[in-house]
Every structure is written in C-alpha cells, then in structure tokens.
Amino acid sequence: MTSTHPAVELDGLTKRFGAVTAVDGLSLRVQPGEVVAFLGPNGAGKTTTIDMLLGLSRPDTGTVRVLGGTPDDAVARGRVAAVLQTGGLLKDLTVGETVRMTAHFYRHTRPAAEVLERAGITDIADRVVGRCSGGQQQRLRFALALLPDPDLMVLDEPTTGMDVEGRRDFWQALRRDARRGRTVIFATHYLDEADAYADRIVLVRQGRIVADGTTAEIKNLAAGRTVRATLPGADQAALAALPGVDAVEVRGDSVLVRTGDSDAVARHLLTRTAARDVEITSRNLEDAFLALTTAQTGA
C-alpha cells in the first residue's frame, strides 16, 4: 500500500458561521479502503465538514490530515478527488472536452476514454454539458474525480436531484469502479444508499457525530417500530420490560412504545391490557436520529 497513514484524520473540528455552529468538535478517523457514509439531515454539517476535509475552507479549531498530509497537498497530487454538492461545470464545453481539459491540470491521469467509460457516459462524450441531464452532469463530475485515480474519493450527496433510475445508474457506476484500496466517503440523506454502498455509517447531527458503526449496527437503530395505543393508566414499567422495547412514553391517554419487536408489544397490549386503537408505524431515520440524540443527552 502507499502508506500506513489513515486516509482521513479529523481532530476536534469546529466551524462557526456567525451564531451558527455548523461543525462542533467533530473527530473522525477513516482507514484506507473503508467506504464510509456520512449520514445526516439538512444542515447537519456534512458539507461544511467535507469542505474542511478537502481544504476548501479552514476550520476555526481542530486539524485535518488527509493521507498523512495536508488537504491541499493531497489535492495537488491527485491523491484525493471529490464530487461536490455545489461544484459547477462549464455549460458550453462538451462532456469529452471537460474531461480532457481537466486531465491537463494533472501530472498524470487515467485515459479520458477510460474514465468516461467507467462513469458510463461514453455515449454522450460529444454532448454539450448544458444539454445534459442533472444525472448525466453528476456522472461527469464523477468521471472528473476518477481522472487522477485518487486514493480517497469524497462525494457530497452525489445523487441529490436525480430520479430513481438516475440514482441507480450513478451508484452502479460507483460500484463498478469500487476497487480494492480506494477509500470512499460520501454524504447522503438516504439510509438506503448508506446501507447499500457503505461499510460504515457515521451519523451526524448538529455538527456532531451521534453514532458511528457498521451498516448493520446503524440499521438496527433505525429498524425499530413505534407502537401507539390508547391506554389510560398504562403500566410503563411493565411495557418497558417487554423484549426489544427501547423506550416507553405516555402522553395523556396514549402510550408510545419504541421497540425492535412490535409484534410482542402489540400482542401484550391486546391480550393483557385494555388498550385500543393500536397502531404500528415504522421508525424512520429521523426517529432514529431523535432517539440517538435523546439517548445522548440522557447519558
């Protein structure tokens, strides 16, 4: 391998914009070869963190090391490449020209034809960028990022604004390209994307990491359900003692149970108590976030 350094070392990163603390003491270490999803809601601080990671902005406090060096050096040597959420393209160049022009800025790149092929846009190489769909433009950005054959690839919400088919094509291109040894970090809102393409998920909220684990571990956090029922005078302790129950909340005559085993809770409520109007809903990612942040402040 090229080095024994971690691919990314973020240490105590903080970034403020006026009164907003976009990133709040964030530390993260990513080993070479890991595929990491940066998962979080709008405004969580994903883009701000990625900007600092790429050297596009400077942290107020904390340090960034990329592949053992500074972000600027890693960029200049083509060791890190990125698909940005906001990076633009020249509308009046063709797809092929954009790739060839960008290739000229590097010391050495993979052949233009190869990256076009790997990004799945060979057939539109002669098309003017302004006439490409959002998804095609995103795959062009991906092709540009492939040019230097980077050790670290960073993608900030690469499929935002794409339809289902566009998203699938994009991830297929990324997966086709997935090579042993390349570290990938991508930001996303979508748990399913993180699930399908990452080995590790880092959950961010309000500029902090609220959970960090394997895909399976994080999925469990979001996999539970909420059982709601009308049950005056519910016995909170009894409910909490049921297998799989994470939390029990009483709101007036209603009781809400967060659980990994909704069947057991429903069965209990319907057979052992006077509960009525039983509803079972899947917990979504937002619930998982809420659960996580609540758990953290409680701890």
């Binding site: 596009l56 990125a82 906001t86 633009g88 393209l89 590097y106 010391r107």
Partner: peptide, 16 residues
C-alpha cells in the same frame, strides 16, 4: 460566469 457557475470551486479540487 465561471465563478457564478461554480466552476472555480470545481477547479480548486484539481492541481491547477
């Protein structure tokens, strides 16, 4: 135009 389009930002991710 290139700044407004974000191309300058894109260029900052290259050795240029």
């Amino acid at each position: 135009t290139e700044r407004a389009l974000g191309w300058s930002r894109q260029l900052r991710l290259t050795p240029l």
